[in-house]
Design a protein around this nucleic acid. Structure first.
Lengths: 337, 337
DNA sequence: GGCGGTTACTTTTGCGCATAAGTTGTACGC
DNA sequence: GCGTACAACTTATGCGCAAAAGTAACCGCC
């Protein structure tokens, strides 16, 4: 590939002049010269060597997107259809701003931070990754970081988080359930942290506001590891008869439960109502179609990227951005009287 | 971040010595010095500056993964749940080999190639991207390229392709349909190129071997653009009564069709049988669960990455790798007599 | 005792680029 | 007609690293 030096030699001028034209520094190069250089650049299809540019400027034009990866099927973020949509949103935004995306899938924060340092990445988007260890490590590298769906109190002091109004979304759909006459409503999830906790809180609040009591046993805990999920699901099916409705923390779980119910001859919504959260393709295509809370996943990716870009240009951003959700009523909830 | 130069200064030795230790060049540095340097490196948590290294070595340790992106919902690769699994397979393999992954989503081959050149990427994995234009452009940059699911005859002369034995997979499932007594079998797809063509060929061959004739009208063409898909699906539903079974080119289409049938009161498999191809989460979770052809998507990603890594180390690779598929019999096919 | 070979280093160069610092030439004001 | 300001350049430097080329000490050996 041709270098600036070679171009300068062929045009019989200095590299600085060529460089100035490339960077559009007006007023430092005459119209004539500019034109000559521009034409030549086009002719030889000049492409800068980013390594050299980065070295000289101590930047990288790279934005890292780190995803937490886990081994088991239902634990693995990658299994959820919406992840690739989010990746797409981030990539598009970043590229339009002249940055590049390096994708990193790992659960080892330290490893990621070394990587950040090695590549001198300009900024980082963390999805499902921020633990206390991560916060400590990441403070060492003074790079802008935007988290997605992270509820760490400690983390919010340092980084901005892009997420949903999970609590409100959960509140809305549980409230809808209540409006349809349901009073025995279970909550299904595999943990009580972060996003799941926020949705649990919304669920509890809706119950409380309707004067419905909540007890520990209304939390149906699913175990996502592949060797346990079947057993776990069976247990939940047994306990389902205690409820008229189940609010699943995600569509993935909701649809999984739906198919399990179908297999056991439990009819939705006649025998029991089921709702989810996310509104992904699974929810739309399943029959009965799932009543759920819609989130705009691409927007989430775009917002995270935009926020990071703002920070890179020195602007301040709020440390908590909550995207709205809305209820999508389909066919898995029955009105009871 | 600390540099080799600084380390050398503090240890009172030359940068070359430090560099040699870093690269484990035995015999060029004494045990004592080696130990001293290694300890120091650990103490200061030295991380190399990749830009500088790449510039000096004229390499990049980057592997590009380029995905073809299209605007419409069903045309957009990212919408298919399996894409992120494939990305994960590539990333894992690459990272274990000390490379990094830069993700690129675009449909502009030229743009991608400029990017390749700018970053001096060591190799490229192309997914759903190779058109004739792409071949021409990519020949200019002498970098190893591995394609995924690409059937371009022209392309195979230049690059290796990792794909499935699509023809055999299609043959198997259509043959299964025939073994269940079906003779009026339609094929559903949105195009007749690449993977879709291979599956169509397998379908036709199975019909032929069973003495069943095929005519143009047995090809149900779906139009994936978001403003057309509904109408398109309705037309297909009308024509469905001419058949006892429909072989959809992908699970995404199959499940979409399944839910449309359900909405119109057409019962699967009682009124009509439906099969797909891919065996993704949609197929597993839908009820009735979809009979389909299984492919190992992660393996596809891993194989593509492995193949590229082999090429990077100078090894020869076959120019066509076909991963096996197998039939997964579930509940969307009825035996007819 | 001079020479080749080896070990364990150091000095130097250059990758391609951006940029600070330096050099012209010339128009302008008074 | 001299200083100043500015436009339009060029020269020189350094980013951090790898690696080629150089050096110095030592050993063995005929």
């Amino acid at each position: 590939m041709i270098t600036i030096k070679e171009i300068a030699k062929q045009l019989n001028m200095s590299t600085t002049t060529v460089s100035n034209v490339i960077h559009g520094k007006a007023g430092e190069v005459s119209g004539d010269t500019r034109k000559k250089v521009e034409e030549f650049l086009k002719k030889v299809d000049y492409v800068p060597n980013i390594s050299a540019r980065n070295l000289a400027q101590n930047q990288s034009k790279i934005i890292g997107l780190a995803l937490k990866a886990r081994a088991d099927k239902y634990e693995n973020l990658l299994m959820d259809p919406f992840v690739s949509v989010l990746i797409g949103g981030v990539e598009e935004t970043i590229r339009n701003a002249g940055y590049f995306m390096m994708l990193y899938i790992s659960s080892d924060t330290g490893e990621i931070m070394r990587h950040v340092s090695t590549w001198n990445v300009d900024g980082l988007i963390l999805f499902g990754m921020l633990d206390d260890d991560g916060i400590r490590v990441s403070e060492k590298y003074k790079k802008p970081i935007v988290c997605i769906d992270t509820y760490s109190i400690e983390g919010l002091k340092h980084f901005t988080n892009v997420g949903l109004d999970d609590e409100q979304g959960a509140y809305d759909i549980v409230n809808y359930l209540i409006s349809q006459g349901h009073r025995k409503i279970a909550f299904l999830s595999d943990n009580t942290k972060g996003v799941d906790l926020a949705r649990l809180t919304g669920y509890k609040q809706a119950l409380k506001d309707a004067g419905i009591s909540y007890s520990e046993k209304d939390f149906l805990k699913i175990r996502p590891k592949s060797d346990e999920i079947d057993k776990s699901l069976d247990e939940i099916c047994k306990r389902a008869s205690d409820y008229t409705a189940i609010f699943c923390v995600s569509d993935l779980y909701a649809v999984t439960l739906l198919s399990r119910f179908e297999d056991r001859g439990i009819s939705v919504p006649d025998d029991i109502s089921v709702v989810g959260f996310d509104d992904n393709m699974l929810a739309q295509l399943h029959r009965p179609a799932l009543t759920t809370v819609h989130q705009d996943v691409k927007l989430k990716g775009v917002t995270a990227a935009d926020t990071l870009l703002k920070q890179l240009s020195g602007k301040k951003t709020p440390n908590q951005i909550k995207l709205p959700t809305h209820l999508v009523i389909r066919d898995t909830v029955r009105r009871i009287d």
